[in-house]
Amino acid sequence: MSPVHVKAVVIGGSAGSVEALTTLLSVLPEQYGIPVIAVVHLPPDSKSLLADILQPHCKLIVQEIEDKTPLLPGHVYLAPPDYHVLPESHNVLSLSAEEEVLFSRPSIDVLFETAADSFDGKVVGVVMTGANEDGARGLKKIIDAGGLGLIQDPATAYAPMMPRAAEAACPTAKLMTLSQIGEFLTHEVSSCR
């Protein structure tokens, strides 16, 4: 199978996803050529320590997003609490404080749908563990736009509702364990920047 060429990897998760993200990111190599953008649902008033928690387990540079942060390979960009993340087609990340979507801000759907638009479908979406249905619509949009959808196998997820919803919305998406997703992103996906 020839590698899929994309401009970014977008990842979303909710309940149990800090651990899940740690597992997944620990697989990616230091010279990983594709920018990774992740939304993890956290309480809105939390001063986000997620980057500090993840960094020791990840060979890439992990940072929280500020408005208009440039997208670079070798980096993992985390959504700040209480803001949506919207990638722009010229490879910067905008933030938005507009309404919650499915009671969530940041919203996985907003990240995925915007990434599908801005990168013209050249994107991989990953839905991980979670106890709501955020991400399903966005993943479908990515696949409809020509991108690739990966879902954490619900049987292996801390909270299976989110991956199940994504699976129902996207029957063609691949189900994998977190380390398989990490391996897939490493070997089967490459940058088209």
């Binding site: 919207l86 990638p87 722009e88 087609s89 905008s94 938005s96 507009e98 907003v110 749908e113 915007t114 638009d117 801005s118």
Partner: peptide, 9 residues
Amino acid sequence: YAMASVRRR
């Protein structure tokens, strides 16, 4: 305005 948000809105 930032296009990603305008497009979405």
